[in-house]
Design a protein around this nucleic acid. Sequence first.
DNA 1: TATTGACTTGGAGTTAACTCCAAGGTGTAT
DNA 2: ATACACCTTGGAGTTAACTCCAAGTCAATA
Lengths: 125, 125
Amino acid sequence: MTIREVCEKFDLTPDTLRYYERVGVIPEVNRTKGGIRDYSEQDIKWVENAVCMRSAGVPVEMLIEYVKLFQEGDSTITARRDLLMEARAEVQKNLDKYQATMDRLNYKISRYEEAVKTGILRWDA
Amino acid sequence: MTIREVCEKFDLTPDTLRYYERVGVIPEVNRTKGGIRDYSEQDIKWVENAVCMRSAGVPVEMLIEYVKLFQEGDSTITARRDLLMEARAEVQKNLDKYQATMDRLNYKISRYEEAVKTGILRWDA
DNA sequence: TATTGACTTGGAGTTAACTCCAAGGTGTAT
DNA sequence: ATACACCTTGGAGTTAACTCCAAGTCAATA
């Protein structure tokens, strides 16, 4: 699979994908004899994982650490689990914040819906 | 209430609070005759709102726009509702992504818990 | 084989949201 | 009245995560 195809699949730019590989968010991708990237199924799973984690704000630094540990083999299984648990705690914390903000937005919007009808907004901001 | 007290209440730095005021994330705060900020109850509600919205990734730019509309008075009620709905859609989208990432992390971690016990990680990354 | 469009690299530039700094003013305790 | 901690400003600096660029290579088409 070419870089372009992978980009379309995950809606990212070639620059981002090359950046991920350069810094180690994903392992190095195989090339054709000409030096052009040819993504394997495994490579694509790494990309999918990176995109998912990044979309929840897991820092690039943490993904790099995970890939590094992964490449060191089975002796790092515990370390990898710990890293994932750390990431999960962080994502959960943010999830809670997002939910709290949703609640606040829903409340405010309901007040505004009323105000749009009546022309009166009971003082709140 | 002094800037220090507000900072402690919301766990932010004076620099951040002054930055919020400078760019318009919150309206201008009253000062003592000496020029020192003295936060009112209303000011604190604005800060609380800003902190909540920012914690869910609502952009500073959007909060500035909201404050600006608010200061223009009741004629902007519809515009403010629309802005809030836009923010809500964005927060909901991210909430979904965060939930998807939680699911993935939970799955991966459960695989790792097993692997830590057995020493074997069924191929996945 | 010549053109054309996508690919490569290393490195510089951008953006959002802070974060820090220097120089100076304020205000409470000795 | 003098020290001392805390406040003020304008402006510069930092950080994470891309994003762009120039100069060159590769490969499918006419």
